[in-house]
Design a protein around this nucleic acid. Structure first.
Lengths: 271, 271
DNA sequence: TCAAAAGTGTTAACGATACACCCATGA
DNA sequence: TCATGGGTGTATCGTTAACACTTTTGA
């Protein structure tokens, strides 16, 4: 049920919790998850009811995001809001871009939505976008957190395949693709891919996530040769259990060993 | 001479040109230039005079930046402001981060400054930071543009070595180092280094800029072997003139040929 | 003729590519 | 016993690393 609890005020807004929120600055997070098959993005529902709450005017999805409070920086805001909307905590979150086009809230549906929830549809909102990486063993989000959301986020957050996204609010599809592009580049220079995997992973899982993110196919034997030459990917004394095939060796990523490894960056240049 | 021409207003500000500017959103640009020896950053002076304009209270430097107008997006704002403050146009500009910490304007000197120019020192300002890359043949900026600046930017913009920065306003030193870190990573996955060189360059110049940006030393013969194997760096039928040593062959970068070249991204992973 | 930077080649080690079959487990 | 994904080796080729001297120009 959408409770229209935001009060519009030309200078600043007071939200339903009586907190001063900044009208010009919001945060949005693109949460990536990997279910061992494909890359997923976490979205929340946006449902607009008729004033009598009897009928749905429209329903679509949006990134988890909201305005910043004026007593928190954007890093704090994005963590707070992500927790409020999805229950996720302790994820790898990193700012990757700001979106501030003048028409980003101007689609007809978005204008209707903004008016309905009591916001000034003409106020300019610049959003600082973050990406988050969630390990496969955390991909089932807190089942209850979303129930305590402000009324206008009335639905459970859900995962969507990156190549199978629904209609999205505002410029959120653009933000997701920008995040995906950023991720592809980031993966080349930083060992962040491991944050999409559980602490213990198999080499096939590692290969698959590289294939999914870089949109490529890799040769199994060559992949394993390269990986096992790297001394920061460490075989554990454990194997998979409960799989109906030969159980795989488990490995972990060692950040300290990775940091020590010196490499000539120039040779990585494409250029 | 600092003319205190901004009018404070709790909802929005009107600047000296009677434009509505957004109190919460600013842009700053870190302009990198390469003078064939070291990497430089373009800074403008910030000078605070006593009310009688007789004495200087303090003088330091800042990045070229200012608040956004509400009728332009940040990409437009940063181009406009960079032109207004330094005369630079047609440079490669790319957003790389937003800085929104609550204390970023709270240093004593910055508070004094904000009050002196008529801005509310308590208003929160989130700045969207851009980096720009300027070719060596453009490094001598427009000699006159700065003369038409708003009064409170009363001095000519100047280049400073990245390892030899003066005291800077606000969090601008942090922004510069973040831009430098970003540049180092970007250079690995994108061919942007050429934007720091003139259209026609020598291989020694190309080697030097890689060494400066990646903070490394490269072997001349190995470097040239790698470069001349790349078919998108093309020798011209021209040589340097007017140098008091053997004149070097000139080359150019071919973006189209670069784009065609397919490469397995995974092999670039560190991982 | 000097100073300054340009330009050049070989060898050894390493990393990338291509490619096909047997193994261990749970159902 | 079958289906499923796990796990392995070799040969060829291309790239990187290490290393020192000659050339061309203007001053």
């Amino acid at each position: 049920m959408p409770k229209l609890s935001n009060t519009f005020n030309p200078e600043f807004w007071i939200n339903h919790k009586n907190e001063k929120i900044n009208p010009n600055i919001s945060v949005d997070s693109v949460v990536f998850g990997f279910d061992l098959k494909e890359l997923k993005v976490l979205l929340v529902d946006r449902i607009l009811f008729t004033p009598d709450n009897e009928h749905i005017i429209f329903q679509d999805q949006s990134l988890p995001g909201n305005h910043c409070r004026d007593d928190e920086n954007t890093d704090q805001a994005v963590r707070r809001i992500l927790k409020e909307l999805t229950g996720l905590t302790d994820v790898h979150l990193e700012q990757f871009a700001a979106f501030g086009d003048l028409d980003r809230l101007k689609k007809e549906r978005d204008q209707i939505w903004l008016k309905a929830i009591g916001k000034d549809p003409d106020v300019r909102v610049l959003t600082v976008a973050y990406y988050a990486l969630v390990a496969v063993d955390k991909i089932y989000i807190d089942q209850d957190a979303w129930k305590s959301l402000p009324g206008w986020y009335g639905k459970k957050p859900r995962w969507y395949g990156i190549h199978d996204l629904p209609d999205l609010a505002f410029d959120h599809k653009e933000i997701i693709f920008a995040a995906f592009d950023f991720l592809k580049e980031k993966v080349v220079t930083q060992p962040i891919i491991f944050k999409l995997l559980p602490g213990k992973f198999t080499l096939s899982q590692l290969q698959k996530i590289y294939e999914v993110v870089l949109d490529t196919r890799l040769d199994k034997r060559n992949f394993r040769k390269k990986i096992t030459n790297a001394n920061f990917i460490i075989p554990l004394k454990q194997k998979q259990v409960g799989v109906s095939h030969k159980p795989a060796q488990l490995y972990r990523f060692d950040q300290k060993k990775f940091d020590k490894r010196a490499k000539n960056l120039f040779n990585l240049c494409r250029f």
